[in-house]
Design a protein around this nucleic acid. Structure first.
Length: 574
DNA sequence: GCCGTTTTCGGCCCGACTGTTTTCAGTCG
């Protein structure tokens, strides 16, 4: 684990332990610091070396000292002391659904229970019966939570957003297609395009809430109904994902969407800003005293706090509220900005019809260029190339103004001799293994325009990531950001952007229109704070010069002919 | 424990829901 990751875990556990001690505000302070460390784009040691730990949101004097102690010694004495005081099993108990720190602490104090297995024994021995606040139902609930926990991590863990995307799409489509719901939006971390999603929050307006719940509950994906109130229903899907449906009134929809989109840190900032202005914000609206002054749209809610509307992908409490207050939010890249794709992979034996299909899709999206990977080296070092017929078809198939380019994808180092005869317009580089570190100086072969297949194992290794970003900066190459283990996530993407490196987004051309990769990649790019001009394939020019086979392409150039940027899209997935 | 363009002290989001209650505590998001 990286030092950032390990420090995050330490502070998160400190928060839980302090919760068990009944501390009121400290746990939240440690959690806030943990969240900040988790999303830090840089190695903690580097920040500490510059004496800038205090600039991290939620890190003050005390936590700064603990981080320094951790970096120096590998442990935090305060944490070690808490662990000696409080049995580790209590943390497991309070993390069970339906149990919290108060209940776990009572089991410890009143029953001497120190962990899940002892609690199971206590229940079996009937020792919970008669405890104040514990009826038959509550005890059964706990027993069931213990059983599910024993069965494995299962349902409570977060999953990749690209995996959840089709599910969200299906549920939203069903609700939109019914008479039970008018407006339907997914809120939560899904709308913020977080890499992983723990559950789905769906918000609807409805003239007939009962009908909305009925349509939702009857959906084939839904397994069991966990809870149902007048305005809210919680279900667990057959695959274990939890989904909340909330029905709100139209005049409250914007406030509810804002509220349930979060993040928590963002909302805390919004609320304290409102308080400073004598206003109150909740999920029903913005209020001055009893009077509602906003609520129907998010724009209204932000507007009456003196803020520009903030894209959901930025709502993490990392300074976006202050930026919005000063009108300093830059427009983010949007779907309409995409102009092409420099990384179209066809299957190795692709026939011309597969190529034609990708071009038809590109034409439908009005792309201006397409870089098709015609040959390359796989991660395991084996060379491959598209069939000769497909390669020679490339230029013929571009009658409608789409510039067709041939890409060669290789590892660091010179072009392998077995690929030397393949004509190409531009080069893509990939690490030969996930951990491969690129050469520190140019090796004489054409510089790549794109660095791709830089995977999650690089992103989680601060030194390797810094190295690849520096490599991209030196060669003025773009680096690919998107879902999946072979692309950078938004945190790594932000680091690349901070270093002045452009990113390239997958467009899912050859995977068909339903492929979530494009929408998800766009969300991650926006989350990284990417403006249109920082996205290599959101430019009118391909960034690949001329067609001189085998010669090096020029570095991506800034174009003064780029049309004015479209207004940054506000449309959340799906 | 953190934080401040009214504060260096005194705040810290707040409402729904559940299960257990004669009016509320705990959990969750």
């Amino acid at each position: 684990m990286t030092s950032n990751g390990e420090a995050t875990e330490i502070f998160r556990t400190i928060a839980d332990l302090l919760d068990l001690l009944g501390e009121k505000f400290k746990p939240e302070a440690y959690r806030r610091a943990a969240r900040s460390l988790e999303s830090l784009t840089e190695d903690l040691g580097a920040v500490a070396a510059r004496h800038e730990l205090r600039s991290i949101p939620g890190v003050g004097e005390a936590i700064e000292e603990k981080i320094e102690e951790y970096l120096r010694t590998g442990s935090v004495s305060y944490y070690e002391r808490l662990k000696r005081e409080i049995p580790a099993g209590l943390v497991d108990l309070m993390r069970l659904p339906g149990l919290g720190p108060k209940t776990a602490r009572r089991f410890w104090v009143e029953l001497g229970v120190e962990g899940p297995s002892e609690l199971r024994d206590a229940i079996a021995a009937g020792r919970l019966v008669g405890m104040k606040g514990f009826g038959e139902k509550k005890i059964e609930q706990i027993r069931s939570a213990l059983d599910s926990a024993a069965a494995g991590p299962g349902t409570s863990s977060r999953r990749p957003i690209e995996e959840v995307y089709p599910i969200a799409h299906a549920l939203v489509a069903a609700l939109r297609g019914s008479t039970g719901a008018d407006r339907v939006e997914v809120a939560g971390s899904f709308r913020r395009a977080r890499e992983t999603v723990g559950d789905l929050d769906i918000l609807v307006t409805s003239k007939d809430p009962a009908k909305a719940f009925e349509v939702f509950t009857a959906h084939p994906l839904v397994g069991e109904v966990k809870m149902r109130g007048e305005t809210k229903e919680t279900v667990v899907l057959r695959d274990g994902l939890q989904v909340d449906l909330r029905v709100v009134r139209p005049e409250e929809f914007g406030a509810a969407l804002q509220y349930f989109t979060g993040s928590k840190d963002h909302n805390v900032r919004i609320r304290s800003l409102a308080r400073e202005r004598g206003l109150k914000v909740n999920e029903y609206g913005v209020f001055r005293g009893e009077e509602r002054v906003a609520g129907a749209t998010e724009e209204e809610v932000y507007g009456c706090l003196g803020l520009a509307w903030i894209p959901p992908e930025l709502r993490e409490g990392r300074g976006e509220v202050e930026a919005a207050a000063h009108g300093a939010l830059a427009p983010l890249v949007a779907e309409a900005d995409l102009r092409g794709d420099l990384h179209v992979h066809l299957s190795p034996e692709a026939r011309t019809d597969e190529l034609e299909q990708a071009i038809a899709e590109a034409r439908a999206r009005r792309y201006r260029y397409l870089g098709v990977v015609v040959a390359g080296v796989l991660g395991d070092g084996r060379a491959w190339r598209l069939p000769e017929a497909t390669r020679s078809k490339l230029r013929e198939l571009a009658p409608s103004g789409i510039q067709m380019l041939r890409g060669l994808e290789t590892g660091p180092g010179p072009v392998p001799s077995e690929l030397a005869s393949v004509p190409f317009d531009f080069r893509i580089r990939r690490p030969t293994t996930d951990r491969a570190v690129p050469p520190s100086a140019p090796d004489g072969s054409p510089p790549p325009v794109l660095i791709a297949h830089v995977g999650s194992s690089v992103a989680s290794d601060a030194a390797a990531l810094t190295h690849w970003v520096e490599f991209a900066r030196r060669d003025r190459a773009a680096i690919e950001v998107g879902p999946g283990a072979e692309r950078l996530d938004s945190t790594a993407g932000r680091q690349a952007l901070d270093a002045g490196v452009r990113i390239h987004l997958p467009t899912g051309l050859s995977a068909g229109p339903e492929d979530p990769a494009r929408v998800v990649a766009l969300g991650l790019a926006r989350r990284a704070g990417a403006r249109p001009d920082a996205v290599a394939n959101a430019r009118s020019e391909s960034g690949v010069s001329g067609a001189s086979s085998g010669s090096g392409p020029g570095p991506p150039k800034r174009s003064s002919r780029d049309p004015p940027r479209s207004r940054s899209g506000t449309k959340p997935p799906p």
